[in-house]
Amino acid sequence: MRDFLKQPLNILEYQKGLKLEKIKPFNLIYSEEDYLLSVFVEKLSELAPVRILWGSELDLQSFLSLLGESGLFTKSQRELILVKEGEQLLKKLKDPKLIRSLANRMKTKAVFIVLKDKLDKSALQKEPYKTLLELGDFLEAKKLDKRKVREMVKNKVEKAGKKIEEKALDYLLEIAGDDLLFLRGEVEKLILYAEREITLEDVKKVCITQKESDLFEFLDAFFSKDLEKSLLSLSSLFRVGIHPLVILSTLVNYTLRLLTVKKSQGKTEDILSELGVKHPFAIHSHKRYLSNFTEQDLERLLERLYWLDISIKTFFNQPEKTITNMVIDYLAKVETEAPLEEVE
Rank of each mutant, 00 (worst) to 15 (best):
S235D: 12
E85A: 02
E85P: 10
L258G: 01
E212I: 09
D226I: 10
R105V: 15
K278P: 06
K22T: 15
N317G: 00
E201I: 12
F315M: 13
G266N: 00
A332N: 15
L80D: 05
G68L: 15
D117L: 13
L53S: 13
E174N: 10
K118C: 04
I175K: 05
W307I: 01
L169F: 01
A48M: 01
I198N: 03
L227E: 06
L53V: 15
Y254M: 02
L272M: 05
V203T: 00
T324A: 11
Y289M: 13
E295L: 13
D297H: 08
V261A: 08
V153Y: 09
L305T: 00
K287E: 00
K333D: 14
N104E: 15
E79G: 04
P244C: 10
L227H: 08
I271V: 11
E166Y: 09
S291M: 03
K263I: 11
Q125C: 13
E195W: 05
T322Y: 04
N104S: 15
T336L: 15
I247L: 03
L237Q: 11
A282W: 01
V157Y: 00
E158R: 11
L119V: 10
E186W: 03
V203K: 05
D309I: 01
L72I: 15
L28K: 05
L173A: 07
T131W: 00
I52D: 02
K154R: 06
V246K: 13
V41N: 06
L331R: 09
L290I: 07
A160L: 02
P319R: 10
D297K: 03
E341I: 14
E303T: 00
D137I: 07
S236I: 00
N155K: 12
L102G: 00
